[in-house]
Structures are given as C-alpha cells and as structure tokens.
Simulated assay, not measured.
Amino acid sequence: MGSTGTADDVDGVVAAWRRERPDLDVSPLEVLSRVSRLARHLDLARRAAFAEHGLEQWEFDVLSALRRSGEPYQLTPGDLLRETLVTSGTMTNRLDRLAARGLLSRHASPHDRRAVLVTLTPQGRELADRALVALLKGERELLAGLSDAERDSLAAFLKRLLVDFEA
C-alpha cells in the first residue's frame, strides 16, 4: 500500500512480484512504475490541452521553443533541433508545416546569408501563449493532491534522478 494509506495499481503489481519472486528486490517498481503511469496521464492531459487549440504536441514543442527564446523569437534550425531532440529531416518537415499554417517564417540571417533563421509570427506567439495557459491548467490539476512543499520536494527528487541521464 502507498504512503497515503490508499492502494493504487502499482501496489498490486509490486505485491504480486514480491509473492512470485521473493528473491528479487522489486522496490524500484514502486517509484518507476508510478513515474511511467504518471507520464501516460501527463501525455493524455497535454494532448487534450493542445487539441483545444488545434495543436499537436510536436507543434507546441517547436512554437514554445521559439516563444521561450525571447524577442525577436528567432532560432536557427540547429537550435530547434537541440531544443526538441528530433532529426534534421523531421525538423524540416515540421517547419514546413508550421510555416504553411502561418505560425512561423524562415528567412536568411542578416549576418550570414547561408544561415536560416526561424521566427515565430504574431499568430504563432498568440497560439503558443494560449496553449501554454491550457497546459499549465491541466498540469496544475494533475498535481492538485500535493501541497506546495510536497511538489517542491518531488521536483527536487526527480531533478536529482534526471540530471544523471542528461549529463
């Protein structure tokens, strides 16, 4: 049973493994199976928030990378690759599709004519801002059962785990 005194599905999985394989330490499942299940709930909540605004998650990823860059909301395609962790071919396709929707534009860099700059349009900025508000509302609801202190502690613990993977 979880620390709240309420059982969840993971408690059942862990109990079954402990019964069937008492020789193994299955305690990692208590953390990581919950992280995995929460990730699925988060993915569904994000998809719903973006769908409200006619966006796919990948579209928000590109638009939000540009929006976070600050004025003039420009990045190179290489910067966007690093921000979104996709391949060059995938990024080109994504930029084409977002440009066709009028959410971003591409033009030559004034400093290097061979370089391209991707710029968020006013329409793209407004859409990214609206989608962010919906995203944060949904994510706040997912975390509503935690106090501010619990949320801060959880964020710190997860960051500690994640830092090793992203180093």
Rank of each mutant, 00 (worst) to 15 (best):
L24R: 11
L24K: 08
L24T: 09
L24E: 14
L24F: 11
D25S: 09
V26M: 05
V26D: 05
S27W: 00
S27L: 03
P28S: 04
P28C: 05
P28L: 02
L29Q: 10
L29S: 13
E30S: 14
V31A: 13
V31Q: 09
V31T: 11
R34F: 04
V35K: 09
S36K: 07
S36I: 04
R37T: 08
R37Q: 14
R37F: 12
L38Q: 15
L38I: 05
A39Q: 14
R40A: 15
R40G: 13
R40L: 11
R40F: 09
R40E: 13
H41Q: 13
H41R: 12
L42H: 12
L42Q: 14
D43A: 13
D43E: 15
D43C: 08
D43K: 03
L44G: 12
L44Y: 01
A45K: 01
A45D: 01
R46F: 12
R47H: 11
R47T: 12
A49P: 07
A49S: 14
F50A: 10
F50D: 06
A51F: 01
E52P: 09
H53F: 07
G54A: 05
G54P: 03
L55H: 04
L55A: 07
L55I: 02
E56A: 14
E56V: 09
Q57C: 13
Q57A: 14
Q57R: 14
W58H: 12
W58C: 07
W58G: 11
E59I: 02
E59N: 02
E59M: 07
E59T: 00
E59Q: 11
E59W: 03
F60W: 10
D61F: 00
D61I: 03
D61A: 14
V62N: 01
L63P: 06
S64F: 11
A65Q: 01
A65F: 05
L66P: 04
R67Y: 08
R67M: 08
R68A: 14
R68F: 06
R68C: 06
R68T: 04
S69M: 05
G70A: 01
P72G: 06
Q74N: 01
